[in-house]
Write a protein that binds this DNA or RNA. Structure first.
Lengths: 110, 110
DNA sequence: GCTAATTTTGTCATTTAATGACAAGAATAT
DNA sequence: ATATTCTTGTCATTAAATGACAAAATTAGC
């Protein structure tokens, strides 16, 4: 069963990594080696005890033939969500952030 | 001229701090002392060369009689915006993050 | 213009957070 | 029950954020 990767609908990044890995029937050790990392740490990533290092995303996407932009978005949005959730910030923070990005773009390259 | 602080409409946090400080006619040195920090570093904050340390936000809000929640939102949204802007992430990242927060809340305390 | 006060910039030390690495225990599979 | 795979705990290492200080640049008052 292949996944349609552009409409990623996932609980969290760790679960997603695990699913991709299982689909290929790879062990943690194997995937960890491909990603040049410790299998123990990859385990922590899949179980949500650590975040996935953004620097390894290009390699990760290459391995699983995923769009880097999409995955970057997934990863970053997850970090944002965790921050907002665990620090009890109002969700309007995202509307604000959107405005601020627009402001940054408008005042670009001056 | 007093500012209505609940409808904070600001370019960026640094400019806002500077405005508040100028309104009180305080020097960098004075405000920095109140915030228990170096005036040189406060200068960098006001000119956008550094971020404001979130840990100092409660004290900051007390000094200027601001709502902590509002300011926290401002500060965090700015960090999000910078990340998205400087790493060229699509702005849909905020929609995604919102969904993920909802997911986290839904699966709360289990 | 001169002087003092204020602000900015540069640099390096210190602290803090993220990640790496390894060992040992727990769970799973054969 | 043995080997394999996965998880957990811990500590080392790395990288990022912040603190601290000196000196240059700017501004304000005279």
């Amino acid at each position: 069963m292949t996944r349609i990767l552009n409409q990623v609908e996932m609980e969290n990044f760790g679960d997603y990594v695990r699913q991709l890995r299982k689909d290929k029937e790879w062990t943690l050790t194997k995937l960890a080696a491909m990603l040049d990392m410790d299998s123990a740490n990859l385990s922590k990533i899949e179980t949500g005890k650590r975040g996935f290092d953004e620097k390894k995303l290009p390699l990760f996407c290459e391995i699983f033939k995923l769009e880097l932009e999409t995955m970057k978005r997934e990863l970053i949005s997850e970090k944002f969500a965790n921050k907002v959730y665990y620090e009890n910030v109002d969700e309007t923070v995202f509307k604000l952030a959107e405005q601020k990005v627009k402001y940054l773009i408008k005042n670009d390259k001056h």
